[in-house]
Amino acid sequence: MNIVACVKQVPDTEAQIKVKPDGSGIDEGGIKWVMNPYDEFGVEEALKMKEKFGGDVTIVCVGPARAMETIRTALAMGADKGIHISDPALENADAYTTASALAAAIKGVPYDVILCGQRAIDDDSGQVGSVLAELLGIPQVTVVTKVDVDGQKVKVVRPIEGAQLVIESALPAVITATKGLNEPRYASLPGIMKAKKKPVDVKDAAALGVSADAKAKVGKFIPPPARPPGKIICADDTPEGKAAEVAKLLREEAKVI
C-alpha cells in the first residue's frame, strides 16, 4: 500500500508573530518553524498504515528552502522519501495553487491513500485537502478521527456536533486528519540520522507544469488589536447579582446580546 502524506511548515504555536511594517507579510526573524500539527496526525496515520500493510510513505511539501527541515522531521518519524516543491514564485501561493502543485507532484507517484491535515494553523484556510482531491478526481473524507482501511475501501469517523458520522469511501481517496486521530510518535535517534540520507526530490513549479498565479491574493497583513484588560465583576457578591451584571455588560458595553 502506497501512501502520500502532505505536510506544511508553519510557525510554532508559541512563536511571537510580528507583522512587517508594510503589512506584506510576517517578520520571520526569531520564528521557530514546525510541522503543522494536523499534518503530523496525517503523517502518523500514514506510518501506521505502512506498518500494517507495507508499502512506501512519500512526504510532499510546498514551501521555501527551510521547509526541508519539516520533510526531514517526517522522514525521521519513519516516512520513506520526500518531494519538496520549492519555488520563490510559490511564496504567496493560495490554497488552489498549493493544491495544484501537490496534485502535479503526486501524479508522479503511485498512491492508494493521500493524507493531509484538515487545515494549517497559520492561514487556517482548510481547503488544500479538498481541492487536491478534486484536482486528482478522487473521493475525499475530511476532518476524521478514525481511519480503517479494508481492502479497497476505507471507513472513517468524522465528528460532527453532538454525534459522529461513519463514512465509507473507495480508495484511493484524500483523508484529512484532525486531533484525536492518533498521537504522533517521537522520532527515534537512528530515525533522525537515517532521515538525513533518505531521498528528497526538489522540484519547482515549472518542472511540475504548474502556474504559480494565485487566484486569491492577500491584500494586507494586519495584527489583531491589543486585547483590552479583563474586568472583574464585583457589583454584587451573589451569583445572581454577578450574572445580572455580566448580562448588563454584554448588552451595553460589548453589545453582543
Partner: peptide
C-alpha cells in the same frame, strides 16, 4: 525542542 523550555512557553518571553 521548539521553545527551549519544558512548558513550551514562547522562548521570546
Amino acid at each position: 525542542e521548539n521553545n527551549s523550555n519544558p512548558w513550551g512557553v514562547g522562548s521570546h518571553l
